[in-house]
Structures are given as C-alpha cells and as structure tokens.
Computed example of a mutant assay.
Amino acid sequence: MEQLAPELFARADPCALELAVVVPVLNEADSVVPLARALAVALAGIEWEMIFVDDGSTDGTIERLEQMASADQRIRVTRRIGRRGLSSAVMEGFLSTIAPVVAVIDGDGQHDETILPDLFRAVFEGGCELAVGTRYAADGSVGDWSAARHRISQLATKAALPFMKTPLSDPMSGFFAIRRDVAIAAAPGLSSTGYKLLLDIVATLPAGLRAKEVAYTFRSRTAGNSKLDSAVALEYFELLLDKLIGRVVPVKFVMFGAVGALGMGVHLIALALSLELPMSFAVAQAVAVGTAMTFNFTLNNHFTYRDRRLTGLRWVKGLGVFAAACGLGAVANIGAGSALYAQDASWWQAGLAGAVIGSVWNYVATSWFVWRRK
C-alpha cells in the first residue's frame, strides 16, 4: 500500500484538536448564535470544534449556521435529509470527528455551558471515560420545572436503573462528555431511539464506565419551541424495551404487532357498524378492511416509524403501498395456514402459523417499501 506523506496532512494550527462539541438542532434559529458565542468563551484554552447537526430546520437555522461556519473554521455543519432523531444525530456528530473527547450539549441554551470544561478535563486529564452534567447531584437543580415534570423525570430515572451498567444520578441527561473511542465501541449496539443517548450508551456497553458527575442548574428556554411531545414517553419505553428484548425480537416488530392487534378491534367495530346499515356482508367486510388498514397505517406512521414519518402526498402513496403489501401478506397468511392444515396440523396451529407468517411479511415488506430509511 502506498505510504502517505505526513507533511501533506499537517494541521495549519500546530495545536492538536482536543474536543468536539456536538450540538443537535432543529429549528433553533434564535439560539444557535448566542450558544456558539457562549461555548467559545467557556472553552477558552481548549482546542475545540463545534459540530452542529441539523435535522431539517425550516426557520433559517441552517443559514445562520453556515454564516458562522464560513467565519470560523472550528464550526462545522452537518445537514441530515430524510431522517430525524436526537440520539442518531449526536452519534453522527461523534463519528464525524477525530477529537479524542466528544461532548454533546442541547442547541436551545438550557444546559450550562460553563461546566463543559470540567466535563472535558474529567475525561481528557482525569482518567474518566465519561463525565455527565447532572441535575440531580447535591448542587444540581431542574430549575423552574413544574412538580409534574419533575415527578415524571424521577420516574423515568427509576425505570432506567435496572438497565444501567454505570450508576448515574441523571441517566436522562443530554449533556455529557465521553472518550470518542468508547462512544465508537458502543455505536454498533445502540438503538439510537429517541432522546436518551446517554442511557443507551450505559445500557449497551458490557462493563461499567469510569464516570464523574458535575452538577448544574437546568435553564429555562429563552427562544424557539420545545421538541418534546407526547411521543417522547413512547420513545423512552421503546428504548428500554429494545435493551430488554432487542437482541431477540426487533422492538419495531413488537410495536407493529401491537398496532395490528388494535387494528383487529377496529376491524370488528367497523364491521359491526357497517352491518347495521343496509349493505351486504361482503361490502361491510370491505369497509371494515379498509378502515382497519387505514388505522394501522396511521398509527404505525405516527408511532412505530415516527423517525421516518410520511406527510402530504408521500402519506397517500405510502397508504397505497401499505395496502398492497398487506394484501400480499393476507395471501401468505391464508396460503401457509391452508397448507399446514392440509398436512394434518390442528386448526389453531395452522391459523397461528399463517398469522405469524403474514405478520412477518407485512412488517418486512412495509419497513422496506413504505418506511425505508434513505
């Protein structure tokens, strides 16, 4: 193999890169400039770069990020098209740098950037593999959270305890620094679901990490809108379920099956209501099938494949492809069940086998043709 001349790749700056700060953003146009300025001040004396990872902002965030990047070569921008998710965005940032220490901080200014040097030094100089900004240490605080939000956070922390191989007071934290090689070692096993990358990492690595916690006070948002919604709780429990059974059964298959079970109820209700009208059973059954299929597609699109959600005309096209794929799944269900029944299997064994084969087909086919990752 041809040897590369080292001098061709020498840094113009003789100081080696020490820290990469990854900032995931989505529609944070009013926050990114003040945050970058505050980070630059906090990181004085450290050789750093900032990597903003944008998940498709539409409010001018990208334009402001590119202006900053054009003025300061230490600021980089990564744009993601057709995919979303805070955890996966952060990991993309981690994997795009050669800095030995990587950190993540939210793009909305709610994390206290002044403790970032402490997190960095704990990893870079202090022998730790992980350093976490915590709201729940002795001097930490959740700020002006409501009592209800505080209780929910504490319940989520307790639910995570059985999965953590590294004891942490705040595994829900989105503010931490970690050795890049440790993050890379964890990457293949991460579910990258939802917002809780730290929990994903400490639940994935086989052994506990040498960790330090640094307390801080969580700030109130001063610009933009929160990205938290009702589906965040679902994503959190999806992450826990993935850590529990993900090596055996894909969690999305479990969710797809759960939606299918609900769809059976919708089918029966639609059929009963249709039969109350002056229509034949065949027509009523067709109405029920169409209703249940639309219901299943809508729920899967909103929850199971939230990170690949279809909208507008793509939603309409997706529904058509979903219906076609599930139609073939029904044929597979009937064909497999009938074949087994003809081989002297009991009716329930044949029916169950057909249902499983049909469900697996529907899951694989729709994952590939309807909600395929780009």
Rank of each mutant, 00 (worst) to 15 (best):
V53G: 02
S96M: 00
R80L: 13
L43Q: 07
D72E: 15
D55T: 06
D72F: 11
I98T: 15
S87E: 01
F94E: 05
A42K: 03
E47P: 00
V32K: 01
I46D: 01
V102I: 11
Q73T: 14
I75Y: 06
G93P: 02
A99G: 11
S31Y: 01
S70E: 15
I98N: 13
S96R: 08
W48Q: 04
V53I: 11
G85W: 04
L65W: 02
G85E: 05
P100N: 10
M91T: 05
M50T: 06
R37F: 08
R84C: 07
A44T: 15
V77R: 02
W48I: 07
A42F: 09
P100G: 08
I75S: 05
E47Y: 00
R80K: 07
D72A: 12
E66V: 13
R37S: 13
L95Y: 00
G85Y: 06
V102F: 01
I81K: 12
T58Y: 00
Q73F: 12
D54R: 03
A44S: 15
R83L: 14
R79Y: 03
R64L: 13
A40F: 01
E49A: 10
I46N: 01
V33T: 14
V41L: 11
T58W: 00
L86S: 06
I75G: 06
L86D: 10
T58L: 13
V33K: 08
I46T: 11
R84A: 13
